[in-house]
Design a protein around this nucleic acid. Structure first.
Lengths: 124, 124
DNA sequence: TAGCCCAGTACCGTTGAAGTAACCAGGTGC
DNA sequence: GCACCTGGTTACTTCAACGGTACTGGGCTA
């Protein structure tokens, strides 16, 4: 794990919770987008850090799905130990805008939702 | 069923498929938002039409969740036969903007995703 | 008195996403 | 000969979302 990323810098709590009404892809897709949005390719184990030590199986699934949909590229280098790098494509970068919109909405309105849930739970 | 709504007017195929990368709420939340965005309250069975005859159980679940989160109000009238009306709150209306953004993104980029999936399936 | 109307509820099953734990290969260093 | 590195895979389990069928209640109409 050379130079681990500062974990919570990329891990916007407004975008990752299943309870949020707007979701981009699977549970981890938005976080992967945030990790890669600066354009620098990152390695498998580098991605695990900001993703809170997500298990390799789940990360593999997430990355394969995003690769299949054309959101990122996977480049394997024939070295030892093996090195694989993931980077966003143009299509992947195009998701950043609606993701920002969703995050902005969440930041502005999640307190209202919390309030509404509390009132609902009390009022029956 | 007095004056059934024109079904597919509200049922934007770009926003309803589980395969779409941006999702607002559950599978049916976006469609309910579309049904109610003109501001006119609608009845339970009126909502079932544009939702492709969704079963009452699933519609109840969707509406209860949206009510709990403060996206819509439920008003029951003490009449016979019973009448219940659903209408968006201000918070619910505030979701329309990011929903439009998500739909716009989908309309612009879904063909690319389809293409990427085909290429991925063929290229291995 | 039989059935219809509306707005659900009860019960049950299926599906898919997510998570855990264990294991693997090929090469390096001790 | 053994552990360690990276980048995974495999098998198994758990959980929530989604869906179908059947049924309810209270007043109304035929």
């Amino acid at each position: 794990m050379n130079q681990p990323l500062p974990a919570d810098l990329f891990h916007d709590p407004d975008c990752s919770d299943r309870a949020q009404p707007i979701r981009v892809g699977g549970k981890w897709t938005a976080v992967v987008l945030r990790c890669l949005e600066d354009g620098r390719p990152r390695r498998f184990s580098e991605l695990r850090v900001p993703l809170h030590w997500i298990t390799p199986k789940v990360l593999t699934e997430t990355l394969r799905t995003m690769e299949r949909d054309g959101f990122l590229t996977r480049t394997a280098y024939d070295e030892n130990p093996p090195r694989v790098e993931y980077a966003l494509t143009a299509l992947g970068r195009s998701l950043i805008d609606p993701l920002d919109a969703a995050c902005a909405w969440a930041r502005a309105h999640v307190p209202e939702i919390t309030e509404a849930r509390t009132a609902y739970a009390q009022g029956g």
